[in-house]
Design a protein around this nucleic acid. Sequence first.
DNA 1: AGCACGCCGACT
DNA 2: GTCGGCGTGCTC
Length: 655
Amino acid sequence: MPALVARVLIDSPLPQLDRLFDYGIPASMAETALPGVRVRVPLRSAGRIADGIIVELAPPGDYTGALSELDEVVSPIPVLTTEVWTLARRASERAAGTASDIVRLAVPNRQVRVEKAYLAAGDRALIPDLPRAAPIAGYLDGALEGAIASGGRLAVDALPGVVDVGNESWVGRWAVTMAAAAASSLSAGKSAILAVPDYRDQQQLEAALAAVLPPELVVHLDARQSNPDRYRGFLRCLSSGPLAIVGNRSVVYAPADNLGLIAVFDDGDPLHSEPLSPYVHTRDAALLRQEQQGAALIFLGHARSTEVERLVEIGWLGTLSPTPAVLPKVIPTAQQQSSDRLAAQARIPSSAWREARAALEHGPVLVQVARPGYAPRLACADCRQSARCQVCEGPLGQKTSRSVPACAWCGALAVRWKCSNCEGEKLRVIGSGATRTAEDLGRAFPGVRVIIADGERQIMHVGPEPALVIATRGAEPIADGGYRAVLLLDGESLVARESLRVGEDCLRTWSNAAALAAHRAPIMLVGVGGALASALATWRQADYARSELADRRQLRFPPAVRVATVTGSLEAVAHAVAAVPGEPSDLLGPVDLGDGLVRTIVRFDYASGADVASALRAELVRNATGRRRPPKAQDRTPRPTLRVRFDDSEPFLDS
DNA sequence: AGCACGCCGACT
DNA sequence: GTCGGCGTGCTC
């Protein structure tokens, strides 16, 4: 029997290195060179050492050249499990990226001290008793539990409202459902991966988990942790025994032991879309992993994304709604101006103003606004042309009513501003941000405490006392006992944006805010009518997603079809696009992006995704290894880079 | 990425 | 005749 070789994944973003390399195993490493461990290996001429991970030990493959030997086993801990490796390879293939880019997301940086402590602790015999499964409230008895036990796939409509999970800790009811689902999986001895879009969601989920699971069974893995904390959590996942693993998008790659459930909350939140190459969305990674490992898969949310709706329509996902149905009390408000002068100034129709005033007698009222700051835009007071930065031509805005106007793009303060059109020197405020809304509302409701929550002033909780809580979308605090009323402002300007996703995006953020209301508290959507308003009012977000998806099918826009954007020089893009199978390819572009770059969007059906990805990936390799400069061109011209990005929604967003 | 190998112009 | 230019291609 021939000696085994170590097949190693090199840590490199280069597409031409994205394959396994065979290395001989020196006798000194025979004990430690095992699958999953970090190694250092010589690459190309001696002297150059690369980091890598042993993926498998195998008989020598078809490579016939001289084998180099491993240089060093860096650590004995198998950080890359077989499941995660397979997932990384499949996810990267689907996105025409490299597996090591995914592995970098999946395996945190090594922290030597943490690792030493972990190894010194030895195998932890201290495995707590498995929790007992408690029934999951709010849905048909046993429906969720059954799906979790049998590896089912479900789109679950979340329960609106907030609850106290103990210690005066109020969380959204969705978090209780998700925690109960995790407990259900753990009670069967299987781990659960719980992915949430942002930190505030994570805090709610952790509070809900603390109520149903002992802390030894919960691990978190998120971007906010320090590197050592993250690595410590990661190593805990590797030790045996079921765990609830909580985190943001890259938690879907956690090395869960005996995975039984993947649950994703609010998959329509843009934070679930990975900004690092190869840009694999949490939803897609979760779908691949579920298919591969057969765990249960749950997409939980207050609104349904068109992507999930598509999966429901093709039968890949089942659906589950609360039983009995829970309908928030949404009141569409007519656009009639308020008779109250101050309310009118604050853009609030009279009916909404009356409801808010009544609600403020009893507790906090949430006001959701579109933009932070005081004035999102400024214009010349004389000619009304929008005011531009004198440094970079960016739009000017104002943080507070007193602050110096500043550029939204480069941050330059606009001192001694002069209109480029009419030489005017006076600025005029356009629109209202959170701060200005707060000032206006403070005048309309004198004597009421006003709280502002936005990206800069992050507030997680507010008490049950009366207060006006002005929050930008996604920054809403949880109110103890729920808000007594919710006002959704700025809908008109939000809906007016030109973007493929405005409708579903608005419905999602409104629904999330509405879910923070107390039972039967009024929710007022100001200034919006039509299908969107009625979807919110009837709390039938899935219906809206269905009609939205039907529209996208008509137009052949994602997610009815898949897309890939190909960016680079005109020739490189044309060449790459020509390699896409399925003639004649369905193309949009090329459009000129300036700097000698163009972008073409390739559209294709889900069924041909693998072919398109492998064709474009081959083009990436060819472009990276082929001639670097156009022959006879000037020396200093940088090599035209070719970039490919799958399922990129950016070109369809507002400009 | 790096770095060696390989085929054309000025040199002792 | 050789030294070295950078264009080309490979990395177990």
